[in-house]
Amino acid sequence: MGKNPAWSWYIVWYFFVGGMAAGAYFLAALADLFGRERGRSVARIGYGLAVPLAALCPVLLTLDLGMPVRTFYMFRLFKPGSPMSVGSWALLGFGLFALVSLALVLAEGRMEPARALALGRIRQVVAIPGMLLGFFIASYTGVLLGATNRPVWGGNAWIGPLFIASAASTGIAAIALWPARARLPVLRRLDLMATGLEVLLLVLFLQSLGAGAAVFLTGSLAPLFWGAVVAAGIALPFLVQAFFWRGRGPALAAAVLVLVGGFALRYLVLLSGQA
């Protein structure tokens, strides 16, 4: 058993903000690639959110270091076997791709249609590797936790995919916070799909823990798990999306609840391995 790394609140926030940035970007990229006209606003808002959120990530990570002035030492080497090393480089790449995608979106608005169309093609080409980096950023933190010898995390293969589903749902919620877009039908369909995947992966994650799942289900973390992750983050927003999706107020409330649930999930997963 390894010692408690005591990763702090900065890391909870990094998992949440990084996941949201990655989710917003890969959804924007998918909208860019497959959404045609219907995906336009999702793509624009998604890229727009990804850039500031991605910029916040290295700040949070640096603040958690024992030697913050040595944050650039993360780039002394590229170690393919170390999730943190690969993750550091991927975060750098992800930020650059998000920046380029947003710049292309902004430039398009100032051009005549013919040139804008050509620029859109370039943006779609950029979106492909950017999207892959987005999926990587969303999941590598879960892979990193698995590559330890701590309770709950050590050897667990389901945290990465769970974080992808959570990145998608929080990314969608962040896009839906744009009031005029809260009721976009495509966002609702995306949200239902991400929620379904998240529930499935949460079950697989808990099942893989065996008796260890008691920490979440009945132990000290149970109130937060059932209250914030399951009820506020999944069940309530699902009910809203299923029955009250035509109201702008309920749609915004659902988005806020999803963000609360997403944050609680990152907090609980980080805490469970450091209890």
């Binding site: 390894g2 010692k3 790394p5 270091l65 030697m67 040595r70 030492y73 330890t148």
Partner: peptide, 13 residues
């Protein structure tokens, strides 16, 4: 060279 990321502490069996 160590920058205090603490990953090693969590990883040691």
């Amino acid at each position: 060279v160590c920058n205090g990321c603490r990953y090693c502490a969590a990883a040691c069996p």
